[in-house]
């Protein structure tokens, strides 16, 4: 019996050694349906080790402290790509290996956070706009973020429990750059947020879709993805792209400098650039894809859905997040003061 067991384990060891093609992926939760991972494994014979995270800061800490190259592909948002690129944490992308590169919409390429996309490949994106339940509010009365400051919304708004999102709407209302690092501008935005506080009813970012579906919240600023999911359950919910502009959070595929399987990582990225693959993700999570060809191949109702596929005129108002560098600390101070209800 013992001998058989030994034989078996030897057999499996040999098997494992022969099959060394592996790619280690660290992705946002829910961002990749398991059947697509299986399909990739089947097509390429590469084993995918898949793990999930739920915020950029966790990802950053992990990558910064990973000495042995635990991950081959990670998916930071644009501002985190910016920081990682500047700190030399990213491996350049070899575009000659990415035969599907041309499917990408040029609107999402060559942005400030990563000039020429030297290190990053756009993956999925969502915007922060205004979600409204039309049973309770006239959507025509809300066209810009500044409208949320009106007294008629006293104690009604949902505010995303996220520093960047909150400051962005205040900066846009004031007509400032969403990536401002000027202490005076940041202070003004903080003052504006204090004025908004009486209108805020809830700070939350994890149960947004449910709050809108059950009508516990009927107006507020929200992510496109959550609003999309909520609007499928409750048809009265619509999404407004504010006139001042809006912030896009674009999550990118990047390869850390110390990745062990760079070639496999490129294969994985190329797989995700294939229109028929990436187009399966938006209907599930409400995030949009920067893949032009994929958007054209979506079913008609999704292709014309303004959350999944906004018109180029709307998209023109989009702003991309950059890293704030040392100004992060200033924002954090004000954010803390805002949350504890100072002043």
């Amino acid at each position: 019996m013992k001998r058989i067991f030994l034989l078996f384990s030897l057999f499996f060891c040999a098997f494992a050694l022969a099959d060394t093609k592996v790619v280690n992926v660290y992705n946002w939760s829910d961002f990749l349906p398991p059947h697509l991972i299986k399909q990739f494994e089947k097509e390429t014979g590469i084993t995918v080790n898949y793990a999930e995270f739920d915020n950029n800061e966790t990802l950053y800490t992990k990558i910064k402290h990973s000495k042995h190259g635990d991950y081959d592909i990670i998916t930071p948002s644009s501002y985190m790509v910016d920081r990682m690129r500047q700190e030399g944490l990213l491996h350049p992308i070899d575009k000659t290996l990415l035969t599907n590169w041309h499917h990408l919409d040029s609107f999402f390429l060559n942005r400030d956070y990563d000039p020429d996309n030297k290190y990053s490949v756009p993956y999925l994106w969502s915007s922060t706009g205004i979600a409204v339940n039309t049973l309770y509010h006239n959507p025509k009365e809300i066209t810009k973020f500044a409208d949320l400051w009106q007294p008629q919304y006293h104690h009604q708004l949902l505010a995303l429990d996220d520093l960047r999102d909150c400051f962005t709407i205040a900066l846009l209302k004031l007509g400032d750059d969403i990536n401002s690092v000027n202490p005076d501008t940041i202070k003004e935005a903080y003052r504006a947020l204090i004025d908004l506080m009486p209108n805020i009813r809830v700070f939350n970012s994890s149960a947004v879709a449910n709050m809108f579906i059950d009508e516990d919240i009927t107006v507020g600023f929200a992510w496109g993805g959550d609003t999309f999911l909520a609007s499928r359950e409750n048809p009265h919910i619509t999404f407004i792209y504010p006139q001042e502009g809006f912030q896009i959070s674009l999550d990118c595929l990047v390869i850390p400098t110390n990745a062990q399987h760079v070639k496999e990582a490129h294969q994985f990225i190329n797989f995700l650039l294939r229109p028929e693959i990436i187009s399966q993700i938006p209907p599930r999570i409400g995030y949009a894809t920067p893949n032009k060809t994929a958007n054209l191949s979506l079913p008609a109702d999704l292709r014309h859905n303004p959350i999944i596929n906004p018109s180029p005129q709307v998209l023109k108002r989009a702003k991309f997040q950059r890293d704030l560098g040392t100004a992060n600390r200033i924002y954090e101070r004000y954010w803390e003061r805002l949350k504890i209800g100072a002043d």
Binding site: D161, M197, I200, R201, V202, F203, N204, E332, E336, K339, I340, G341
Partner: peptide, 19 residues
């Protein structure tokens, strides 16, 4: 309370988990 009315416990939690 909608995470708006902060009490001492929330302050401590906030300092440890998010700030």
């Amino acid at each position: 309370g909608g995470a708006k009315s902060m009490l001492l416990g929330n302050l401590i939690q906030e300092q440890f988990l998010s700030a």
